[in-house]
Design a protein around this nucleic acid. Structure first.
Length: 511
RNA sequence: GGUCCGUUCGUCUAGGGGUUAGGACACCAGAUUUUCAUUCUGGUAACACGGGUUCGAUUCCCGUACGGACUACCA
């Protein structure tokens, strides 16, 4: 097998879409699996759509996700530069070669003329309105103009583009690793612009030239490129690079969760989840978008989830470290159909990854929340709280949100529990329980439990009946972590204080 | 409109000519936890449709429907 060299080649036109992260991941996995090279190339040939900060954003996103770049922008390498805008002259040479070989031509049509052509064909009832083998003869280009006219136009500095001369009625075969063979008749392919009038190449030319020059072995990209892949095959052929042509793998698209269609930022916003890896503020519109990172998704969990959108290992294992993913990944097991993006599953992965972390690791999340709230807390206590909470947490921020009551005594109590459970027995029991607690020097989960049992005996009320009331008294809420542990953490004095506060402030329902 | 790609539970998917069509998420129920959650057990739920080929099709072929992508001097 030839040396694996893959590339992730985003455009710096804004924040990196989550689908792009998956594409990068698959490229990375293939590279690592075969001891190959992962290349990052920035495709910034469209000066109009360039967004400053986007390249840095992409870099930071990949770094956060743990997708390492071996060669490319920010890393350098033997094929530098890796930013297409800096490779302008390279493309020019190959465009020239295509012209010299008669496989491309100059076109001088203005956008108005192009528009007119499409309009004309449309009214004639033509099924497609492309600049192609059937229409190029009616246009203003080096195939229809005389040689001297062309020369005159070129030397006078008239604007022109270079178009590929796609042959008519030729069967183009494309081998795709995911979809097997795809056949397209060349008459369906239009004479794509290769070089724009600003001297920049279009995606098609730049992509093929760079992939060849950078010795790319596999092109793994989104399915939106499938329709233009035959064009790329043609380019390889015309440039004489058929043997070096990379293998293609066109990834199924990520779709929105409800209904159909490509996953868009709009859909994600509506459903209340991010679509970008990191927070992003568009420099032009100032529109702000939240990121997975800032929403508390762990990169390992997000990647694990992403890996399974369109791929699976064929076994029943679902939790994979990056190392394991690298081991089992294969292009053959990538599916063909688009995958709907269900944030529930992503949350489940996050939960799984969170709960296997040690309490000490988890404590850092809580500690950083506490710092923002200006609440002091020892590492030990934070770890203990996280330990009590870890089974019920999805995001790091939940430790604070669900554990707030450890630091702030409740002044409001869950009304449902109170109206249902808080009665004379509760008062009787809790008073007895308080007396028991007072005899203790310190409260541990175990001591709390035996105190509870004793109180149950002296009051002859089963403790099960008052557990929810006790919880409400201590935390204000109807659900939360283990109560014995809760009492151990908040300590004897605070437990007593909270119980007596509740006893004083909650009115007993007269039954 | 044209071209290309796709279609297994609500979702991610396994499977593949003969299976009780498997797993996971979500959902529901029961058990356990003298509380909620966790955990455990169980349950609801799918081969888009129509033709072929075949003894037999969810699986192969052809259509149809539906969905998606593309159809720019954007990537």
């Amino acid at each position: 097998m030839r040396e694996v060299r893959v590339r992730f080649a985003p455009s710096p036109t804004g924040a990196l879409h989550i689908g792009g992260v998956r594409t990068a991941l698959y490229n990375f996995l293939l590279a690592r699996k075969h001891g190959g090279t992962m290349i990052l190339r920035i495709e910034d040939t469209d000066q109009n759509r360039y967004v400053s900060g986007a390249e840095e954003y992409i870099l930071e996103s990949l770094k956060w996700a743990g997708i390492e770049i071996d060669e490319g922008v920010s890393k350098g390498g033997p094929h530098a530069p890796y930013r297409q805008s800096e490779r302008k002259d390279i493309y020019k040479q190959y465009a020239q070669k295509l012209i010299d070989d008669g496989n491309a031509y100059y076109a001088f049509d203005t956008s108005e003329e192009l528009e007119a052509m499409r309009e004309r064909l449309k009214t004639q009832g033509s099924s497609d309105q492309q600049y192609s083998s059937t229409t190029r003869s009616q246009m203003k280009n080096s195939l229809t103009l005389s040689e001297s006219e062309v020369k005159q136009k070129l030397s006078s500095g008239e604007q022109y583009v270079i178009r590929l001369k796609v042959p008519a009625n030729e069967e183009v075969k494309l081998v795709d690793l995911i979809r097997s063979e795809v056949h397209v008749n060349s008459s369906q392919v239009d004479d794509k612009v290769l070089m724009k009038s600003d001297g920049m190449p279009t995606y098609h030319l730049a992509n093929v030239v760079d992939d060849y020059l950078m010795k790319i072995s596999h092109v793994i990209r989104g399915e939106e490129w499938l329709p233009s892949a035959p064009l790329h095959v043609l380019l390889y052929k015309f440039l004489g690079w058929e043997k070096e042509m990379p293998q293609f793998a066109h990834l199924p698209l990520l779709l929105k969760a409800d209904g159909n269609g490509k996953l868009s930022k709009r859909d994600a916003d509506k459903a209340g989840f991010p679509i970008f890896p990191l927070n992003w503020t568009d420099p032009k519109t100032k529109e702000f978008s939240t990121g997975f990172r800032e929403n508390g998704y762990l990169p390992e969990a997000l990647l694990n989830f992403l890996a399974f959108l369109g791929w699976n290992p064929g076994t029943e294992q679902e939790i994979f470290t990056m190392k394991e993913l690298i081991e089992v990944f294969s292009i053959e097991r990538i599916g063909k159909a688009g995958a709907k993006f269900d944030i529930h599953k992503a949350q489940w992965f996050n939960q799984q990854y969170l709960r296997v972390k040690s309490n000490d690791e988890l404590a850092n999340y809580l500690l950083s929340s506490l710092q923002k709230e200006n609440i002091a807390c020892s590492n030990e206590k934070a770890a203990k709280i996280c330990g009590a909470l870890k089974e019920r947490v999805t995001f790091p921020k939940d430790f604070w949100e669900q554990g707030k009551f450890f630091f702030i005594a409740p002044t409001q109590f869950d009304e449902q529990v109170i109206s249902k459970k808080w009665n004379e027995d509760t008062v009787k029991f809790l008073s007895a329980f308080s007396e028991e607690l007072k005899t203790l020097t310190t409260v541990t989960a175990e001591l709390a439990k035996s105190a509870l049992e004793k109180a149950s005996q002296t009051s002859s009320i089963p403790s099960g009946k008052i557990m929810q009331s006790l919880r409400v008294a201590l935390s204000g809420g109807a659900s939360g972590p283990d109560l014995m542990m809760t009492m151990e953490i908040i300590g004897k004095e605070e437990t007593l204080r909270r119980i007596s506060y509740a006893l004083e402030n909650i009115k007993v329902k007269v039954s």
